[in-house]
């Protein structure tokens, strides 16, 4: 695909925007609609857009690590989050309220767990798209 400068700039901003919004979705998920899953999906859609626009390699580059590594790390994060209350209850939650002066911030292990979900979803969806796209590409080149 031939790249055009307007598309490039739009896409760059779109990717950044999607990243931020997805993270926002993740954070607010505990109190309002959203959460790790929709957050992760939204983040992955950034990868999808880039992949469709510039091909699988660009998508890979944007991810920096391989999708499977994301998956493994995300899974381990979730496991880690579930181990904080090891002695009393598996997956028991732990909450700390941080006072930042202007506002208070609730941080808890469920949030960490949700982060794990986010990372896994990001990895899985990108892996789906990248796999299919790269096969399509090799097929095309092969012809």
């Amino acid at each position: 695909m031939k790249s055009s400068p307007i598309l490039d700039i739009t896409l760059r901003w779109l990717v950044v925007l999607l990243g931020i919004v997805s993270f926002f979705l993740l954070l607010r998920g505990h109190d309002e609609p959203g959460g790790g899953f929709s957050g992760g999906l939204l983040a992955a859609s950034a990868i999808i857009i880039v992949t469709i626009a510039y091909g699988a390699d660009a998508g890979r580059k944007l991810l920096h690590f391989q999708p499977l590594s994301y998956i493994a790390v995300g899974l381990l994060l979730s496991v880690l989050a579930s181990l904080f209350q090891w002695d009393t209850a598996f997956m028991g939650s732990l909450w700390i309220t941080l006072s930042l002066g202007f506002t208070t911030l609730k941080i808890g292990t469920p949030l960490l767990f949700d982060l794990g979900v986010y990372v896994v979803v990001l990895g899985v969806v990108s892996s789906f798209v990248l796999e299919i796209e790269s096969v399509v590409k090799t097929k095309k080149e092969g012809r």
Partner: peptide
């Protein structure tokens, strides 16, 4: 009780890594 579930998960994740 949790280990038979968690342990394979950890092994699998490490296996992916």
């Amino acid at each position: 009780l949790i280990l038979p579930i968690l342990l394979p998960l950890i092994s699998a994740s490490l296996g992916i890594l």
